[in-house]
Amino acid sequence: MSGVRKVASAVALLAIVAALSLGAAAGGMGPFFDGIRSLGAFYLSTAPPQIAELVLGPSYRGLSSYSPEVVTSIVWDYRGLDTYFETAVFFLAIIGAVAIYRGIEEPVLRRPASGLSPIVRAVTKFLIPINIAVAASIALHGHLTPGGGFQAGAALAVAPIIVIVVFSRRYLLERGVTKLKALFFRSAGLIGIALVVLIPVIWSVISGEWAWVMQNQWKPGAEAFSYPAYLGGALISGSIWFLNLFEFLAVSFGFTILFLLISIDEDTVRSCMIRGGEECDRY
């Protein structure tokens, strides 16, 4: 089928959809585009600290997550256990991909670095620090403006792809971004998440007082331990800031591992798969 015919058939399908929706519009449409559910209204009215103090009063501080960014506060506070185990799924998926490439690594970096022309390289050298700065600002401002750990990690994961395409895989390795280091930083991020989550429990065991797991503010009735909502006058939203930071590390270096592995030359992989060989089995 030629391209014009494909576009024509796509538009014809779209026309069928339009005819269907004409028929449905005559009968009226269901609950889309209406107001929000009461759970969403609850999140909206308790997450920002300014509103929460109006709604709940200052003595019920723990029922708010102290973050003006409602989505991030849901992800890390109200539904923190959900996000914790989804991070575990992410961890296992990357471990699965690394396991497929077990024992395969380029034995000797003998070929000279290839890549695009010097003009593109110069522009890229200028661009990569901008990318990293933007990603870091997304992560560290994630509790105030749209953004957070996931978004910043995905934004930073574009940088190794650009470096691999424009320079080469060897350039990235020579700058110290190896699979082992990326695995280390990613594990450090995951351990950091677990520590931030478990510190209230450890504190509770030591001191013998009540504490809540996965909550960033103290709860009414047990004003024992919480992460600070304000640090030096600046709003840091308790544990959300730390969780954003560690999730940023984990996500960005997780995807860096994947792209370091998928850019290995296919001949190297095949020879290592057939021969095995000690020079391939360095990890």
Partner: peptide, 19 residues
Amino acid sequence: APDIVLVYVPVTVGIYPAA
């Protein structure tokens, strides 16, 4: 949904096509 845009643009315009 600006949060979703921030995560969606690098993932589906950058990472998926590259992989």
